[in-house]
Design a protein around this nucleic acid. Structure first.
Lengths: 200, 200
DNA sequence: GGATTTGTTATACGGTTGTTCAACAAGTCT
DNA sequence: AGACTTGTTGAACAACCGTATAACAAATCC
């Protein structure tokens, strides 16, 4: 429908384009609409090709999870680096980085929801989720430690801040008109103030 | 208007059993597996009956949303009432009430995820979500006000605490082995301590 | 009793799903 | 040039989807 037929392309590029098409479909149609045919149509490719590059549609969705995870981590890492060397500024950059594009994006939420909906039924997706969560919390623990949070309080503080960020991000994506990204920033900063002044 | 007594089974009971079957299917099979046939099989009735009692499968899912919402509200209200008259105890009961059964339950999360996945595509579900969120936050604002949180800080504090509760509840359901309900209780209480001591 | 109302089933229909596979186009090798 | 490899297609398949509807079962009314 778009590209001329029978044109060769790099296999990795094809894989990437299919993953991107999968993300677009998840974003626009939701988890229910992410069928092989819809993804193939979005990528401008025949349905059979999806099963040629991926071991079934579940594998494609799992790989899309990995790609989204990588994007989120890279974006937050860049935000932290861009914040300079002040520990508190780095922590705030990490926390508020989730409230702006491309992370605070209904499309990305739709992708995430699709994964959550698979956690209960598919153990390998559950494992992938646990890994993502563990990595997020670990990064956060390091940033909190640099801000002077006591080692004994590190775990529970990181769990709490992660929950706060997830909750704000979730609602920000689900109903963007409820509160703004700037409000989320302020709320998160205020929470960090309260925690770090009393939590060491 | 006299109630006809010749019905073989109470229609409301049928409706409720179908809603409960819908929740069970959502819990075990995930959002993708919540088909008319699967729900009917779970309820032990024929597929046609679902469309007889509900205006299509989307309506059944929306009604299940309403039922789950009602259950959650009732449970939290009971927890608050059971906590006595101390404002802080009532607030804590409301917050930590989300971390125990029947609210902290993978099945309930699965139901919630199914709704979230419909928010982007269906305005009716989005409206239902906004109402639930607004109600939750409003209740929380009242409890926070009783604890002495200043009116100017009420809105942002309620948004933050709601996010914290949602995030903890979400992770508690998604991977129950990551941290315990008791830990979630402690984390939430610690956050409330930090907020209320500094946030007025 | 028979007529009637109502709950329920079974089936049929058109459409979509994931997956497989023979065929084919385009580049590479000899 | 011909043979071979690789990327891609599009049709086929069985299974499932949501919905509509005619037929059946049971309870009530007259």
């Amino acid at each position: 429908m778009k590209e001329p037929a029978y044109r060769r392309s790099e296999p990795d590029a094809r894989r990437r384009s299919l993953i991107e098409a999968c993300m677009r479909v998840l974003g626009s149609e939701g988890a229910a609409g992410a069928s092989v045919r819809a993804i193939a149509r979005e990528a401008g490719v025949s349905p059979g090709l999806v099963n040629h590059y991926f071991d079934g549609v579940d594998a494609l969705i799992a790989e899309t999870y990995g790609e989204v995870d990588r994007t989120v981590r890279a974006h937050l890492a860049a935000a932290v680096e861009g914040a300079g060397s002040d520990p508190r500024a780095r922590l705030e950059a990490f926390v508020t980085g989730s409230f702006t594009a491309p992370i605070a994006d209904p499309r990305l939420l739709a992708t995430w929801i699709a994964f959550w909906s698979l956690v209960a039924a598919r153990p390998e997706i559950a494992r992938q989720h646990d890994q993502h969560y563990a990595g997020f919390r670990q990064t956060l623990e390091a940033l909190l430690a640099d801000c002077g949070v006591a080692p004994a309080a590190l775990r529970r503080t990181a769990i709490g801040v992660t929950a706060l960020v997830d909750g704000l991000w979730l609602e920000l994506c689900l109903s963007p008109d409820c509160f703004s990204a700037e409000e989320a920033d302020g709320i998160a900063r205020r929470f960090l103030d309260a925690l770090i002044s009393t939590g060491r």
